[in-house]
Structure formats: C-alpha cells, structure tokens
C-alpha cells in the first residue's frame, strides 16, 4: 500500500484545495502519529514580506492532522472527510520561516473521544523549532 504522499497526491487525503493547501508531504504514518512537510513558496497565501505568517504555520499543523486522518480513511477505502479545528492549545510560535524553507512536522496523537482527536505537533525548519502546540480536530460525519 502507498505510504508516502507528495503534493497533489495528498488531494486523495485532504479536502483542502489551492490556494489553501498547506501540506505537501505525508510519511511514516503509524497508529499514533505521522511526519509531514511543507516547502514554503513565494506565492503561498500566508506569506508576507518573504515570511510565513502565524496562521500559515497553524494551518500547516491543521492540514497535517487532516492528512493523517485522511490516511486512515484512505486505508479503509474511504474519501477524505472535512476536518475542522475545534481548539488550539498551548501553541508557541518561535519564528516566521522564510520562503524556500522546508518545514518538517511531527504529529503525535494524545487522545481521541467522540470524533475529536487531540494532537501534539512540532514544526521544524531544519534543526530549528519554529512552532509547537496542541490542536483538537473534529471530522464531519458523512
């Protein structure tokens, strides 16, 4: 089974489409987490003065979670479901990464209940931690 998804291949997993696609890599998926990536391009919706702004980083985490959830659905032969952010908690933004940066994100599931998943995420640009925090995502029932 396919285990690495890049660029438009992710459209099988997430409901978001351009101009608001904020994840371009999903790999190393396990039951309890995954790794994702995003290369920041000049024309990214959330880039201003050559730097990715805070909502872009948060949306990258949210769509990483969407891709992770989508992968589970895909593995079961399902379509991606719309996922929404329910809550953001204890999220730090340390820097605004620049155009050209390759973000590398580690997701970890902390808990699940009643259709809501609590995840922890760490976003790195090379070795530098640019953002970290928790997010709750709920998936819309079909």
């Amino acid at each position: 089974m396919k285990t690495v998804f890049r660029d438009a291949e992710l459209f099988d997993l997430i409901p978001q489409r351009p101009p608001i696609v904020m994840v371009d890599l999903l790999q190393n998926v396990t039951d309890s987490g995954a790794e994702t990536g995003l290369t920041i391009k000049e024309d990214n919706l959330f880039v201003h003065n050559g730097q990715m702004q805070e909502p872009g980083l948060i949306e990258h985490i949210a769509q990483s979670a969407a891709a992770f959830a989508g992968f589970k659905g895909y593995a079961d032969g399902g379509q991606p479901r719309l996922g929404y952010i329910g809550e953001i908690k204890r999220l730090f933004v340390y820097a605004r990464p620049c155009v050209g940066a390759c973000l590398h994100t580690t997701l970890r599931v902390l808990g699940e209940a009643a259709g809501i998943t609590l995840l922890a995420a760490e976003v790195k640009d090379g070795e530098a931690l640019v953002a970290e925090g928790q997010m709750k995502i709920f998936l819309k029932e079909d």
Binding site: P19, V21, L45, I58, L82
Partner: peptide, 24 residues
C-alpha cells in the same frame, strides 16, 4: 474571497486561521 475556492470546493467555510489573522 479566493480562499473559498479551496476551503472547501462547493462548501465555503471561513478557515479558523483566517479568523485568527483577522483578530491579530
């Protein structure tokens, strides 16, 4: 707004992060 072309096709929902940016 062009953001709704992708969030989501046929189902416009204001992205939470855009609402946060509006607050900022």
């Amino acid at each position: 707004c062009k953001v709704y072309e992708g969030h989501f096709p046929g189902t416009p929902v204001s992205p939470g992060v855009c609402n946060i940016q509006m607050i900022l």
